[in-house]
Amino acid sequence: MTPSPASPRPALRHETVLLAVVVLEWLCFHALGPRFGTLENSFDLLRHSAEIGLLALAMTPVILTGGIDLSVGSLLGLCAVLFGKLWRDAGLDPATAAACTLGIGALAGGLNAALIAGLRLPPLIVTLGTYSLFRGLAEAITRGADTFTNFPAAFLFLGQERWLGLPTQAWFFAAVAAAVWLLVHRTTFGCACRAHGFAPEGTRYAGLPVGRQLTAVYVLSGLIAALAAVIYTARLGQARADAGTGYELLAITAVVLGGTSIFGGRGSVHGTLLGVAALAILNNGLVHARQPREVAGLLTGALLLLALAAGTAPRLWAARRARRSPAPSSP
């Protein structure tokens, strides 16, 4: 769980900086928008960030292994459409349909896994292909036009109502967050993921079951994307082939903002959660500050660069000092 032994320990952890950013954002928007700090708005925040948050959670172990999954947004769309199809056309009740959808998500993740772990193809290319394939299947199944709607109220409860005081989907989000956190930070599996991110070949030679690890990571990603699809459908009360367009980039943004290194090996689940929070608060708060939506995009870009620079600056600094004084060993 410690950062790379090669890099000097930074004065402040990335997560601490990010926490400060989140708090600052909160204070700023609280000052700007009188209704920003209300309980109701906090619930809106939770509701609106649940799906992106889930995808970001799924993406974290993937990126920790040094991989990437560009297909999650498309898979969300495909799963939403298939869920609608199973419920309306196959006549399944929502719970069964949701269970089947989760299975399909895992299966689709399995396709990524087979190509990445089995054929050892680069994750970027494979998921670029499935990004197009999954969205294409969603469009082909619905012919682009079909929209699933009029879901029963009991199902919509999942996305629009509260359970035990919190928006229903927040409980799912919390459960997945806890599970992924435990998996990444408290199991040997999580350690192995980081190890693979640091040194893929080394991990292989060390005798770790790299293939099985990667398979698990991508299947998990598909499974969580399917869950996000079900929650998305419940929140909107409709499922269509364009659901989740562009979510993969938002999820990656959140993960990277959370301090996970895109090269793998370094990062944390709580960092990802903070990254999700930072982006969600920015998007929501700017509406309360009555700024147009483009500003949110601009500031997301700026925040990303700043957070990144904040993480790298100390290392650069140290490297420069090390270069000035003769290094004890080769770098």
Partner: peptide
């Protein structure tokens, strides 16, 4: 500059510039 000079990962840098240019242009 951001990638080579500051040593930031290119996918993140260009993700940020992609969003910034696109939204800035729209604005």
């Amino acid at each position: 500059i951001l990638v080579a000079g500051l040593g930031l990962p290119s996918i993140v840098v260009t993700l940020a510039t992609m969003v910034t240019w696109r939204e800035g242009l729209r604005w």
